[in-house]
Design a protein around this nucleic acid. Structure first.
Lengths: 100, 100
DNA sequence: TATTTTTTTGACTAAATTTGTCAAAACAAC
DNA sequence: GTTGTTTTGACAAATTTAGTCAAAAAAATA
């Protein structure tokens, strides 16, 4: 149940890297990476993919974490989030079937 | 499985109102309402509530439709949307429990 | 504890996105 | 084909997001 930020922070720590080093490798300012890790800022899809490649995490895994973070933030403070998710799932299924 | 736009369009048609009339009542430009009905633009929460009051639809119902539209759009073209939703649900549940 | 290193924060600017407004185009009804 | 309605798109204003940088805070180490 780790957020995107948790995942990339743990990956960095496992490799024993400093923000500065990751920043240099990915050409992203270290202040921004710090904010990603802390969940203060949302990365773009391109940035998510950069992290996946750099840390050797499956893109699908990281994208899943990133999108689910976004969805959870939409649901923030919504007491009927389960119902909302059910409706959203139906809609997603419908759009997938009907390729709109 | 109606989108937010479908709901407010049907509500307007049931009452036999013109865009112009709804626009005047809600103080929202009719071009924008047209776009809401067609799903071309996303209303703000305040606007959603205005529609609910005006058409006599439960706010909760309309908010659910509006948020689930947003979530479905996040999932657009994501073939593993079911997994993403599961993870999102866990996160939402976690945040709800821990009031963060 | 003092020094050094790393991380976090916030201010600033630039860029991108969203907003409402309006009028003309497209469409529908008659 | 005239009238009434809806849709579209261009435009400017406002808001949000993005990256850059340096200083503050926190952590590690001597």
């Amino acid at each position: 149940m780790d957020s995107f930020g948790d995942i990339i922070r743990k990956a960095r720590e496992e490799k024993g890297l400093l923000l500065r080093q990751v920043a240099a490798a990915l050409e992203i300012d270290q202040a921004i990476i710090s904010k990603f890790e802390r969940g203060d800022r949302k990365p773009s899809k391109e940035q998510v993919e950069k992290f996946a490649e750099f840390y050797g995490i499956a893109k699908k895994t990281l994208i899943t974490s990133w999108l689910s973070d976004q969805i959870a933030s939409v649901l923030y403070e919504q007491e009927n989030f389960e119902e909302i998710l059910k409706v959203a799932e139906e809609k997603a299924r419908y759009f997938t079937k009907n390729k709109e």
